[in-house]
């Protein structure tokens, strides 16, 4: 029987209340949303927070998906199932549908949240690659107000993010790029598993050449879940199999995958190249 160590439990009823609780309990407190990463880690005693601040009561306040100006806002408390079913989000960016369909399973997706996934900072997390490809911005609130963090600076290492112990991730903002295509490709050992490797791509073409390219990679040791060298290779070139294959190889060269129970490093590097190629082709097909 797996039982977490003891902890104090507090329920936040607003963002300011959550921040006040974080201030009161200090750096050994953890925010819990869906809990589907944190609670298993607590049961295994890999995490032993002194206090849990439950923000499920903020589901309405932080649970919206809406286009505001030229950005798509996705609240931190949006559940995976809600993102998957959001016509607004998946209509603009089919990459969300591709990725969410293969994150865990429908029951887990009912509970797990977008913000929780990102703040957990797992180096194999899917949405981290998706938001990196989309060049999203994270909105973080602390005692001094809100600040924004480019998603490519949000993750600072395994299980480490730019969110300070007294701050809360509020929402993600994704620039809406008219005429862009997007896609996500993942290889997993079995349905619902974490990826062996996965890649996301966003492309915009102008005058026959690629005007903008975003590539996100997860589980393969890509710095900040992105592949800037491969993106730079693509911009200015005509979209096509040759450019996509080359970009995939460049992305793979810059990864640092580790061998583990999901596969050897060279296999993951192969997947990084191949899945990047497929995601780019998929994104191009949706322009």
């Amino acid at each position: 029987m797996q039982v977490p160590a003891t902890f104090a439990y507090e329920r936040a009823d607003s963002v300011p209340h959550a921040l006040e609780l974080l201030e009161r309990y200090g750096p050994e407190a953890r925010v819990v949303a869906g809990g589907h990463s944190l609670i298993p880690m607590m049961k295994l005693r890999l995490a032993q927070p002194e206090a849990l601040i439950d923000i499920n009561g903020l589901a309405a306040e932080l649970g919206r998906i809406a286009v505001e100006g030229d950005e798509l806002a996705i609240g931190a408390m949006v559940r995976h199932a809600e993102l998957l079913e959001s016509a607004t989000a998946t209509g603009l960016f089919p990459i969300f549908q591709d990725a969410e369909r293969v994150i865990a399973d429908p029951i887990v997706r009912n509970r797990g949240t977008v913000g929780g996934s990102l703040c957990q900072g797992d180096p194999s997390e899917d949405l981290s690659a998706v938001f990196a490809a989309l060049r999203a911005t994270a909105v973080v609130q602390g005692p001094g107000g809100t600040r924004t963090v480019p998603i490519r600076r949000f993750h600072q290492g395994p299980y480490e993010t730019a969110v300070a112990p007294n701050e809360l991730l509020i929402e993600l903002r994704v620039p809406v790029v008219p005429g862009a295509g997007s896609a996500y490709e993942k290889v997993e050992r079995r349905v619902g598993d974490w990826p062996v490797a996965a890649a996301g791509a966003v492309l915009r073409v102008e005058g026959g050449v690629i005007a903008q390219a975003g590539i996100g990679l997860t589980a393969v040791g890509a710095g900040h879940f992105c592949a800037p060298e491969a993106e730079a290779h693509l911009v200015g070139r005509p979209p096509g199999e040759e450019a996509f294959a080359r970009a995939g190889r460049i992305a793979a060269e810059h990864c640092e995958p580790h061998a583990d129970q999901r596969g050897p490093a060279d296999y993951k590097r192969h997947l990084a190249a191949e899945l990047t190629r497929r995601a780019l082709a998929g994104a191009a097909g949706r322009i």
């Binding site: 797996q2 439990y9 809990g35 589907h36 609670i39 298993p40 049961k43 849990l52 439950d54 865990a104 399973d105 429908p106 029951i107 887990v108 009912n110 509970r111 619902g192």
Partner: peptide, 22 residues
């Protein structure tokens, strides 16, 4: 570990895995 789903119950009408809910 929230993998097998035998502990599934409805919480406010939505199925969740009760081994991973406090």
């Amino acid at each position: 570990t929230s993998n097998c789903g035998v502990c599934t119950v409805h919480l406010d009408g939505v199925p969740v895995k009760s081994c991973t809910v406090l």
